[in-house]
């Protein structure tokens, strides 16, 4: 599966492109003619200081926000929003059991009725949610809730998985569980984009880095090169722990 995707889409052909995307909020351009592309078949981390516009850029990618100017282009075989899933920092779970949340997702994603029970079992297994399947989702711990949200996002079998600081408020154990799900998704062929402040996480997971500053892309590099030799002043300052204004 993975081989197929890679063969069909050379690395130079991006899965998703933001082309001069401008987003105005409160009279100021929070995304300022942002151009950014996501390479298919890899894990990309979007980094940058608070207020750089990472989360907004991600919402534009997901089609949740229409930009004032510029274009969002998907690869020809991508259908948005069907082939895009997004997981937020704070999981939004329905007021139902874990099972109810996943069943709802399968229904929305158009999984035929006679396949839902089997798929549901697979998802519970994938998220190791079997023992809490019938617990009200909102009564779970933060880590468990995020696991449900991850598994729910994967229920769509997305080609593009967007993660907006999914582990920012989780402990290391819960973080590890989420990261395993991310890797599993990537192994299954999904292109993964994660917004993160956690440099360790970016190093552990990402092959590709996009660094944003004040609504613009200031650096694009393979992960190793980015962490060893950042070329932009903003990224250098960020990595060395300095404030760059």
């Amino acid at each position: 599966m993975l081989e197929l995707v890679k063969a069909a889409r050379p690395e130079t052909d991006p899965l998703l492109t933001l082309d001069h995307v401008t987003l105005i909020r409160g009279g100021a351009a929070v995304l300022d003619a942002l151009s950014l592309d996501i390479t298919a078949g890899v894990i990309t981390a979007i980094m940058g200081a608070n207020g750089a516009g990472k989360s907004l850029a991600m919402r534009v990618m997901a089609g949740l926000i229409a930009p004032e100017a510029g274009q969002v282009r998907y690869a020809p075989d991508m259908r948005a929003p069907r082939d895009v899933s997004i997981v937020f920092q704070r999981p939004v779970l329905l007021r139902r059991s874990v099972r109810g949340n996943l069943r709802h997702a399968l229904k929305v994603y158009g999984v035929p009725r006679n396949q839902r029970t089997r798929r549901l079992a697979e998802l519970l297994e994938l998220g190791r949610l079997g023992l809490i399947a019938d617990t009200p989702a909102r009564a779970l711990s933060g880590g468990e809730q995020q696991r449900v949200a991850m598994v729910r996002a994967l229920a769509a079998k997305p080609k593009l998985l967007l993660l907006d600081e999914p582990t920012a408020s989780l402990d290391p154990q819960a973080t590890q569980a989420i990261e395993q799900l991310m890797r599993k998704a990537a192994d299954d062929g999904a292109t993964v984009v994660i917004v993160t402040h956690d440099r360790g996480q970016a190093k552990r997971l990402a092959q590709d880095i996009r660094f944003m500053h004040r609504g613009k892309l200031v650096e694009k590099a393979p992960a190793k090169r980015f962490f060893d030799h950042p070329t932009s002043a903003a990224a250098s300052a960020y990595l060395s722990g300095e404030l760059f204004l």
Binding site: L64, P81, I86, V108, Y109, A156
Partner: peptide, 12 residues
């Protein structure tokens, strides 16, 4: 207010 982004992102 809470559900809108999620449901839209799911293509509901």
């Amino acid at each position: 207010i809470e559900y809108d982004e999620l449901l839209r992102s799911m293509g509901t």
